[in-house]
Design a protein around this nucleic acid. Structure first.
Length: 586
RNA sequence: GGCCCGUUCGUCUAGGGGUUAGGACGCAGGAUUUUCAUUCCUGAAACACGGGUUCGAUUCCCGUACGGGCUACCA
């Protein structure tokens, strides 16, 4: 394979969702593996869906993951421009060529007329009306109208589209690198719009022209494109480019996580509430749909999660509100992972946070949730691909080495947030000591603390095997930087014996006397203390831990003391004893 | 509804005509530990169903069921 060229072609309609990142990754991996070129192309042909900032977001997200384009807007390259809106003239020219060669035609039907057709058909036999080889001769287009009239309409600037004239009674055979042979009958294919009334091309036209002009050799994209690939092949044929047509590989979709995996006793109520709120917001005007009964119904469905999917089947004779409820739940619990799922399920589905116009349009990213890019990349790579070995941890370079189109699986992969967390933990655990503090520092600083380098280093060393996400360094270790906020009252009641207070005060005094406060010496002091008093580890250590951190969870007590330093330790322990007594006496 | 794609533990998956169907996440139990975590050990857990083909099918073929995608002047 020589000089392979692959592209990632997102559309800047908002934040790039994690499935898009995986598509980009696979394209990148294959390009790198064979010393090819990875291209970023911005597909902004839908002016109505354009979102400012989305393109910057896409670039930043890719860079964060280490997926850097060789060519693209802002990255240079010989095949630009790489933004489709800058290539409008090219598409118009080719569209005209398509009409001239008899492979496309002008269509003057208005969107309203088309919608009416579809509505009419839907009422009849449930079939869907299509603009295709069976119906095109009864529509208003350059195939049915006299040439002079068409010329006149064009000259009058009547809005028109250009549609592909799909040949009848033919077959399109696609050799997909993931799925093998896929066959489509052209009679089933509609005459897709190539050029819209606003002069912009549709995805179908633009992507074929650009892939050809940019000499793309492999198209790796999501399975949602498989159905329209037949049209794309037809276009290559129409342009006479079939012999240089790229290879196709359609990736399995990333699906929503299995309900069984995220519905559990702890979050059931919260989850049910979130779903109810979302449902009411969307369908609140449905007759009979009441918030309290809906919440009850959803809670009940979630409780019996084993039979969830079968209980969401909609029956014809059910009342409208029930149908709405079931349809909503089915759509939001199953199927492909979507933007909203992150909020509903309480997990990130975007690489980076996105600030939308409203809060409902803003999303938390993996980066802000405390994930390392390498972990996200590793996790994503394994969602739909597997090297066939038992190795789980792969650096980007190792992924490039191991990646192989033939190993991509065919069936959709459920998004597994726990697995993502596990990957992150593994990367944290493996990380060389020097690399961690720079990553943790911003999190600590965001909470208003400027730790000394040594202190931060020691802190990271103590916390690293207790953290899954970078943000855990703060949530699990904030007390190294500021006073204790929450004491674990349950454990204090269980462990603290007020009559031992004088003993502990004594011990604190002994600690205060120590000239060397390292872990070895404080431990020694504790041993002496226990020998003198007859107390056991289990009597002493929990008290110290609770006094120092407020919680039973945390690093080795003596190492904690060493890092905090004598002054803090002594003060905290004294304050702790006061708190314990107050608690017991209250 | 039509077209297309898929189906191995709850999840990600390996495997492949004869295997004790392998690994990982998660879960349960145990060891270590002053706690939590790490680490280690153990366990429960899968070839959707029905027909073929075959000496033999989870593996090949065909159906069914189920899941998914598409069905826009969106990408």
């Amino acid at each position: 394979m020589q000089n392979i060229r692959l592209r990632f072609a997102p559309s800047p309609t908002g934040a790039l969702h994690i499935g898009g990142v995986r598509t980009a990754l696979y394209n990148y991996l294959l390009a790198r593996k064979f010393n090819g070129t990875f291209i970023l192309r911005i597909e902004d042909t839908d002016q109505t869906r354009y979102v400012p900032g989305a393109e910057d977001y896409i670039v930043e997200a890719l860079q964060w993951c280490g997926i850097v384009p060789d060519e693209g807007p802002g990255f240079g390259g010989e095949y630009g421009p790489y933004r489709q809106s800058d290539r409008k003239d090219i598409y118009a020219k080719y569209a005209k060529e398509l009409v001239a060669s008899g492979n496309a035609y002008y269509a003057f039907d208005t969107p309203e007329e088309l919608n009416a057709k579809r509505a009419q058909s839907a009422e009849g036999d449930h079939s869907v009306w299509k603009y295709d080889s069976h119906t095109r001769m009864s529509m208003r287009n350059s195939l049915t109208m006299p040439a002079a009239e068409v010329e006149q309409l064009l000259a009058d600037k009547t809005p028109y589209t250009v549609r592909l004239k799909v040949p009848a009674n033919d077959e399109v055979i696609i050799q997909d690198r993931v799925r093998g042979e896929v066959i489509f009958q052209t009679n089933e294919l509609d005459d897709k719009v190539m050029l819209k009334a606003d002069g912009m091309p549709t995805y179908h036209l633009a992507n074929i022209i650009d892939d050809h002009l940019m000499q793309i050799t492999h198209v790796i994209r999501g399975e949602e494109w498989l159905s329209s690939t037949a049209h794309h092949v037809l276009l290559y044929r129409a342009f006479g480019w079939e012999d240089t047509m790229p290879e196709f590989a359609h990736l399995p979709l990333i699906l929503k996580p299995a309900p069984e995996s995220f519905i559990n006793k702890n979050n059931l109520a919260e989850l049910a509430e979130r779903f109810t709120g979302d449902l009411m917001q969307k369908h609140g005007d449905t007759p009979g749909l009441k918030e309290d009964s809906t919440l009850k119904a959803i809670t009940q469905l979630f409780q019996d999660k084993a039979s969830l999917s079968s209980r969401l089947k909609v029956k014809d004779k059910e009342p409208e509100d029930k149908k709405v409820l079931k349809t909503y739940l089915k759509d939001s619990l199953y199927g492909k992972l979507s933007k909203r799922d992150g909020d509903r399920l309480g997990m990130p589905v975007f690489p980076l946070s996105w600030e939308g116009e409203t809060e409902a349009d803003s999303f938390l990213g993996f980066r802000e949730a405390g994930f390392l890019p390498a972990a996200v990349v590793n996790f994503l790579a394994f969602l739909g691909w597997n090297p066939g070995t038992e190795q789980e941890i792969f650096s980007l370079d190792e992924l490039i080495e191991a990646f192989d189109l033939e190993k991509i699986s065919k069936s959709g992969a459920r998004f597994d947030y726990d697995k993502a967390r596990w990957y992150n933990q593994q990367y944290l655990l493996q990380m060389p000591a020097a690399e961690l503090p720079p990553l943790v520092r911003p999190i600590i600083e965001a909470h208003g603390h400027q730790p000394e380098a040594d202190y931060l280093e020691g802190f990271c060393d103590l916390m690293k095997e207790r953290a899954v996400l970078l943000t855990d360094f703060w949530t699990g270790g904030y007390y190294f930087f500021e006073p204790i906020r929450d004491y674990d009252d349950v454990n204090i009641r269980k462990r603290y014996k007020p009559e031992r207070r004088p003993l502990f005060e004594n011990f604190i005094g002994q600690l205060d006397e120590l000239s060397n406060f390292d872990a070895v010496h404080t431990k020694e002091a504790a041993h002496t203390f226990m020998e003198e008093t007859g107390l056991k580890f289990g009597d002493v250590l929990p008290i110290l831990r609770l006094g120092l951190a407020g919680t039973m969870q945390g690093p080795d007590v003596f190492r904690m003391m060493e890092l905090m330093g004598k002054e803090t330790v002594v003060t905290r322990l004294r304050e702790g004893l006061n708190y314990f007594d107050n608690l017991i006496n209250s």
